[in-house]
């Protein structure tokens, strides 16, 4: 249905069989469907777009309509093993609020986002144009993204908010980048926890 998303593979590796998983901005529910199949998770999606919600219902996953900008009101502390937000954080205004909420209702949070500091993006800016790439596919005038940040920015935010980065993998169009990820990677996937 949708294009293959390589962050799904990383996320799947971090999920143990039978976990309780919450997927924020679950879209058509493909990731949850995948996790239900290969990890037998008890999965719930959150979606506020009616068309995507409908797609999730068609896809046979549990989906709950909720406006993430208002947090995860009503969900219990520590209820989920993992709370996932795949390529949606950059489209939210309440960045710090949702990160706090994810770590309130989940033992760990999994977040992936496009890296604005990717070298091709920098090159584009140097050439005087806003970047358009595989990870940032929209034009500046129609992008759903409202926050533009780099891997280094996100690391600093986690540090500032007492969020422990337990694992971070960065990719350049599917290829794992171990060196200089903030320059060489277009997408980063984080496993986050509460600092002890």
């Amino acid at each position: 249905m949708t294009a293959y998303r390589y962050d799904y593979e990383v996320i799947t590796q971090w999920i143990e069989p039978g976990e309780k998983v919450l997927d924020l901005g679950c879209g058509d529910g493909d990731l949850l469907r995948h996790l239900m199949q290969v990890r037998q998770v008890q999965g719930y999606g959150v979606e506020n777009d009616p068309d995507k919600l409908l797609a999730s219902v068609k896809n046979g996953v549990n989906v709950i309509q909720m406006d993430l900008e208002k947090g995860l009101i009503g969900l219990e502390d520590g209820f989920f093993d993992h709370v996932i937000m795949s390529l949606s954080l950059q489209a939210m205004h309440n960045t710090q609020g949702i990160l706090a909420e994810m770590l309130r209702v989940g033992r760990e949070a999994v977040v992936s986002f496009p890296n604005f500091g990717y070298w091709r993006h920098r090159q584009s800016i140097l050439n005087g144009r806003m970047p358009v790439s595989e990870s940032l596919p929209h034009q500046w005038y129609n992008t759903p993204n409202v926050r533009f940040f780099t891997i280094a920015d996100f690391d600093a935010l986690c540090e500032m908010n007492g969020i422990a980065v337990r694992e971070r993998l960065a990719f350049d169009e599917g290829k794992l980048m171990l060196e200089e990820p903030n320059f060489l990677a277009s997408v980063a996937v984080y496993r986050l926890g509460r600092s002890a």
Binding site: P50, V57, E76, F79
Partner: peptide
């Protein structure tokens, strides 16, 4: 309605919830 949804979620029941505009 959300009260019902959260109560079902608490019990790990399969539930979907839509708020129709």
């Amino acid at each position: 309605s959300r009260e019902i949804v959260y109560a079902l979620l608490h019990n790990k029941r399969k539930v979907s919830y839509a708020e129709i505009d």
